[in-house]
Amino acid sequence: MISVKNVLVLLAVAFTAYLAARGLSWTGPVAQPLVVVIALVFYLATTWLCIFWEPASTRSTPQTGAAGAGAAAASAGADGDPKALAEGIRGPVPLPAIAQVLALACAVIVPSAISVAVGAASRTEPFATWYLGGIGALMTIVMVRRRPWTAWTGIVALTVASMVWMGPLNALALGLVGSIVWVTCAQLLVFSMDRAARDTSRLTRLQRAASGWQTSQVVRQRERRVQVQKALAVAGPVLTRTVAHAGRLTDADRLEARIAEGKLRDEMRGPRLLDDAVRAELERARRRGANVTVLDEGGLDGVDEEQLGVIRAQLADALRSAASDRLYIRTSPDERVAVTVVGRSPSVGGPSDEDSVDLWLEIPHPGRA
């Protein structure tokens, strides 16, 4: 499967292989060719390990890939293209400690090994100075893998070794400056990508919050429209008759107005307690003259529709047998009790006495009683 990550990995491998291949293009005598070959193999193995190696704990996590980011770093060093690191915005994962040690060992050993192996007369030849760009590319990969201290330590080691073996001016002129610039650009790119990732995450949270607020407003508007429609359905006929009779209502009209008012209060104060059976029993109680109060104060939060159906059925049965003059129906904060129904009526002693409680019913939560 061709992807940006795979392309960047291929570019990184090809770029580092090209730098190493320069070390085999001997145009002069080489005192110890075997040492050169061993140094090249060690460099390539370490570099490709830093490109491909991800901790086992992160392989199952969806990532754009540390390898792709490392490859981007190597290739970005050559052409300065910041898009090469764009895939690392959700990665890359930090380089494991063993790979860091190998990278530092490579930065320390390879320059000296190559300089000794080619001999003093060939230390400024292209086949002997390839390590300036090679170690720079390796440290760029290490930087992208979020190990800045290791990367800069490797650059310091490269600087010291190259200046010792070929002199400060030759080292700076033959590629040391470019390696330092690569690592610096890689650090700036990683910082910029991390900042972009943070900004993206922040904008995503703000967008979700805005979407949630907008959704809640839409839901509230829908609920208000539903409530207005219910209010019109209940109170519309009463208001129409009131207007038609210029406010002169009969006793039957006044009763219908009180019942309509009660229905509207029920829908606003306790909608989760209501179904058709409960509404019918509440209307029946009001028509016989009872004063009914329904309050849902949050005691039914988290109760599913099936449990609500059981609670409503028990409430309708309780209202069907109630004969109290005042009925108080409210949800309960108790963990076991869902709804409390209290009925009060005037005591036999006379109107001066307090109403007596003639109904007390606690409807339990289904499955919690």
Rank of each mutant, 00 (worst) to 15 (best):
Q100S: 14
A105N: 01
C50T: 11
A99C: 06
G28E: 12
Y43T: 07
D79T: 14
A21H: 11
Q32H: 15
A21N: 13
I89Y: 00
K83H: 05
A103P: 07
A107C: 14
T47D: 13
W48A: 05
V101H: 00
A20H: 05
G23M: 13
L102Y: 07
Q63A: 10
T58Q: 12
C106A: 15
I109R: 01
A107Q: 00
R59I: 04
L40V: 12
T64I: 02
A97N: 01
A73S: 10
V37K: 03
G88Y: 10
A39N: 07
P94A: 04
D79P: 00
A66R: 13
G65H: 07
L95G: 01
W26R: 13
Y43A: 01
T16Q: 15
V101A: 10
R22M: 13
K83S: 09
F52M: 10
A12H: 04
R59F: 02
G80I: 11
W48K: 00
T27Y: 02
A67F: 04
P55N: 07
Q100N: 11
L95H: 05
A76Y: 01
A67P: 08
L49R: 13
Y18G: 15
A45Q: 09
T61Q: 14
P33H: 02
A31Q: 13
Q63R: 12
R59M: 03
A31E: 15
L44C: 01
A67C: 07
V93W: 03
D81G: 00
A31W: 01
A69P: 04
S25K: 11
F52R: 10
W53F: 09
Q63N: 15
I109W: 14
L24P: 07
V108M: 10
F42W: 13
L102M: 12
